[in-house]
Design a protein around this nucleic acid. Structure first.
Lengths: 275, 275
DNA sequence: GTTCCGCATGAATCGATAG
DNA sequence: ACTATCGATTCATGCGGAA
């Protein structure tokens, strides 16, 4: 099977307008947080964040299929000792746009940033907000079942690695079906808390989230041949995972630097496929 | 040391008015969720929840000391396939009342109820919203330090290995004081995610939360002799924990049934103290 | 080829210092 | 007074080199 990975350079508020209606099965993205990545993106002020994001979510609502899902990875910053409220306000405003706020998953980061302060502890979780266009959407729950029992708990850390290896062996060997059937016996449905470590130092560039994160949602909300969109592509994690999992994907990135890097890494893969 | 446990029967909106200003060090409570406990506070409709709660939080703001903390355990319900937004709205409204929204802790319930729905997984987390009156509040971080590694599990193997090594060297050298050094160094500050199993009901009534939950926040935000308040007492978990930890406490409950039960369980303790 | 130790490094936050 | 920059704090992870 051949999948298309469509990488585009530009501001997603403009580029999204060139996409047709109802073509995307899953949007998975992590937009720049407020005043974060100041040197790369503009560094949006907390007070302006909702206003800045709403034009994007309007377009996302348009390009998403009625059965599709939008997963938004975000976390509010601390400003003067207080949590900002722009994420809460964003949810309320997106509902006014027509989005349904179906669920809030928690990404529990075991290795969060260190530090000690007199008035708070380290922040070790982020939000994964699930939005939908309607009450009926595609969800393939069996794809993300996890091993159960104490055995699984003690090996919680290796979970994502195991999943990765399983995928690789599935693609490589062709015995995927048998393997997954056999594994299904001891497996149980997961909850809405995801336990994943951040990847600090994998390559020469650091991704905002580990591959396991988009991987999980791609399994859950898409099938082979479906189309995935990341309007804030960054280092392209979502798109690389999509390609590996045989999903078409679209990635939009405003910075030429990131765009070129992702472009360069995608080419070799294509070459291998054509050989 | 003798602590006072003050249990009152009535609607907290009325009873709270009888308390003086600035007398409470910590408020820890889990209010009735919407359409929960229908016969008590009337089963508040999601649309009316904020409106219903705001008079309570006004009084709470008044009775709390300037250095005190309010921890609100809450989780929004699913209504017609969508998460309700009353918690988000409540945070925004409480800020208008003068509360600071300092932090949001996550209670990660590892053994939540089994279950499966076509469009969502089990809900295994709840919010623990921290509100304060000012930027300076009491926090005793050392009281809740945890063993190095994960909250409870996963690192056990490595810890025990280290433990063995330390034990051997300790026996060999005879330097006992190294132990305390090592203990201090191997205890780290926790994060804002609390991993606690729900309690499987050791009595004839089920508590909304396990004792470990108020215990953690009592350690963190109060000292011996301080005063704790739970305006929605229920089965009295907060107050029992407070008494055990030598904190004064006030509990308010609208249902005579719960009130009498807690009252009955508190009496024997007093008797023991007087003997 | 395993296992183990040492080291760099994060979507952080606070408080002090500087313009 | 108000904003901008910088140093200090701190721990899970994965990598490279060593035993």
């Amino acid at each position: 099977m051949k999948v298309k990975t469509d990488i585009r350079l530009g501001d997603c508020r403009e580029v999204l307008k060139t996409l047709p209606d109802n073509v995307v099965d899953l949007i998975f993205t992590s937009p720049p947080y407020t005043d974060q990545r100041k040197n790369t993106y503009g560094g949006i002020h907390p007070d302006k964040y909702v206003e800045w994001f709403l034009p994007v979510s309007t377009e996302l609502l348009r390009v998403l299929k009625p059965t599709g899902t939008f997963v938004l990875n975000i976390k509010e910053k601390v400003v003067e000792g207080e949590r900002s409220t722009y994420v809460l306000e964003l949810i309320l405003e997106m509902k006014k746009q027509g989005w349904l706020w179906t669920e809030e998953f928690i990404w529990y980061k075991k290795n969060c940033y260190p530090g000690k302060w007199p008035n708070r502890f380290r922040d070790s979780w982020e939000r994964l907000l699930q939005f939908n266009k309607g009450k009926k959407f595609n969800m393939y729950q069996e794809e993300v079942m996890v091993p159960m029992g104490d055995w699984a708990k003690s090996r919680l850390k290796k979970l994502s690695d195991t999943d990765k290896k399983r995928d690789e062996s599935k693609v490589g060997s062709g015995f995927g079906k048998n393997i997954s059937n056999w594994l299904n016996r001891d497996r149980v449905y997961p909850t809405n808390v995801l336990c994943l470590a951040t990847e600090c130092n994998n390559k020469n560039h650091s991704a905002a989230f580990p591959e396991g994160l988009p991987e999980w949602f791609l399994k859950l909300f898409t099938q082979s041949g479906d189309t995935v969109l990341d309007p804030f592509m960054g280092s392209g994690t979502t798109n690389f995972v999509a390609q590996r999992m045989n999903r078409n994907s679209i990635g939009i990135e405003i910075l030429p630097e990131y765009y070129n890097m992702v472009k360069a890494e995608l080419e070799p893969v294509k070459l291998v496929l054509f050989e």
